[in-house]
Design a protein around this nucleic acid. Structure first.
Length: 428
RNA sequence: GUAGGCAUAGCUUAACGACAAAGCUCCACGCUGUGACCGUGGCUGAUACCGGUUUGACUCCGGUUGCUUACCCCA
């Protein structure tokens, strides 16, 4: 095996066995987002580095040490997108979508962060990203949460829970930040290295620390509640009330902060314990100040992102049966003239029955070995073409899931039976 | 960046310091025409790499690389 040819660390090949699950998830997402009238957009995976520095925040882990940044041939600094929201905001500003307009959009694709790979965390990973631009909420906040709950229901993923919090306005957060610096500063001798560094840069992040030695100090830390403005409080109360009314269970987690600096007011996170240490499957929040911060017209907005690899992992953890891509019909052709007819017949069937997936055996071999392959293909039916079928024009259709022998149909009979099969499969 | 575990055939795993094995997959055959189960046969490896100890190393020791899990952070 060649040593020089291998995939880049943390960047995975998603092979044939896995793609049916990916497709199922993507199709479920598409269907649900359609039902809420969110429109798909497609954005570049490269942006100017400046965009991420200004949106995510200079002192976040992402910007400090995780971005794939390089110089273009003309000297411009470019970065592979580490998340989607900044790109959506940039696109909305670039295309004038925030001038007396509101938009609900979504996009999906690869993101890149140079972290140490582990279960559920890769250097190239995929996110589904949904954004409501120009909506002040809290009604749309509720909608965001309900649609994500709907997604988990559609995919039958029960082992997941919702946490909510509010971060208040930027001003409230600023006041709170000052109080935290004051509070944690009094314990500066007890803080670990990480916390001490964050004390100056991003004290809210200290609340995220899992160091048991700090647990008591963190537990007694001041709460954002005291700095919360009335409008944010009302916003959050309505949100909680409406989400409850919709029958969605959640817990309020005052420590839920999110790792990107642009969030304000609503933040939420769907968490599972099925994926090792990487529990966050889908999370999001409101970012009312970001448009202005990036030089656009001020616009309230909220969004969420889901990790596709994590959804896939959770799906596999929750479902015993593996999804597979199988043909509806497998054609067994004995002999060269039969193969010719098989190819032509398959074309006619695909033409008249869109959605019918037909596998034709091109490998030759004895009748028996072909039938074996037909069985292994997973197809419910085998179509048998040999000399006698060519002469009679009657094709042999054999069920593969029981011992029944083949039945003879002419081509129109075949179309009828296969059409029935297709509609049965669709209602399953 | 820090720490642990792992590395043998396409896959999963055996082999006390002395023959490199098995199962699965794949292919063929079992009277060119009724499959799955079954039977018989076949294909497949510098035991990750480099060095050391030893009469002898897949096995012990050192290093390298890779993978993986966890800390951290996050989707």
């Amino acid at each position: 095996m060649s040593k020089s040819l291998r995939a880049v660390r943390g960047m995975n090949d998603v092979l044939m066995d896995a793609t049916p699950t990916w497709r199922h998830i993507e199709e479920s997402v598409r269907q649900i987002l359609d039902s809420y009238l969110y429109r798909e957009i497609k954005l570049p995976i490269l942006e100017q580095t400046e965009l991420y520095r200004r949106s995510i925040g200079e002192v976040t882990d992402i910007v400090e040490k995780e971005m794939y940044t390089f110089e273009d041939r003309n000297g411009e600094s470019l970065t592979l997108r580490p998340e989607a929201t900044a790109g959506v905001v940039r696109a909305a500003i670039s295309n004038g979508l925030v001038h007396n307009q509101r938009h609900k959009v979504w996009t999906v694709g690869p993101m890149f962060r140079r972290e140490k790979p582990q279960k559920g965390r890769y250097r190239q990973f995929h996110q589904i990203d949904v954004e409501a631009i120009g909506y002040a909420g809290p009604d749309v906040d509720v909608e965001m949460i309900l649609m994500s709950a709907r997604l988990f229901r559609a995919l039958a993923l029960p082992s997941i829970r919702l946490e909510l919090n509010t971060l208040g306005t930027a001003e409230a957060r600023h006041r709170y930040r000052e109080r935290l610096i004051d509070y944690f500063g009094r314990y500066s001798n007890d803080l670990d290295e990480e916390a001490a560094r964050r004390l100056q840069t991003n004290p809210l992040r200290i609340l995220d620390s899992k160091n048991p030695a700090l647990a008591d100090i963190i537990a007694a830390a001041p709460s954002l509640d005291d700095d919360l403005d009335d409008a944010s409080r009302a916003h959050f109360d309505t949100l909680c009330d409406w989400v409850s009314a919709a029958g969605i269970e959640f817990t309020v987690n005052r420590r839920l902060v999110r790792g990107l600096d642009y969030y304000s007011r609503t933040v939420f996170e769907w968490i599972t314990d099925q994926l090792g240490a990487q529990g966050a499957v889908l999370s999001g929040g409101r970012y009312d100040g970001l448009y202005e911060q990036l030089g656009g017209k001020a616009a309230p907005a909220i969004g969420w992102a889901a990790g596709v690899e994590r959804l896939v992992g959770l799906y596999e953890a929750c479902h015993r049966e593996k999804l597979a891509f199988q043909p509806h019909l497998y054609i067994v052709a004995v002999g060269q003239p039969a193969l010719r007819e098989a190819i032509l017949l398959a074309e006619r069937l695909r033409e008249s029955l869109p959605g019918l997936n037909i596998d034709v055996n091109y490998d030759g071999g004895s009748f028996k070995s072909q039938l074996k392959r037909a069985d292994k293909s997973g197809a419910p039916w085998a179509l048998i073409i040999g000399d006698s079928e060519l002469q009679s024009g009657q094709f042999g259709l054999k069920p593969l899931r029981n011992d029944d022998r083949q039945q003879a149909y002419d081509e129109s009979g075949l179309r009828r039976v296969l059409g029935q099969l297709l509609s049965d499969a669709a209602t399953e």
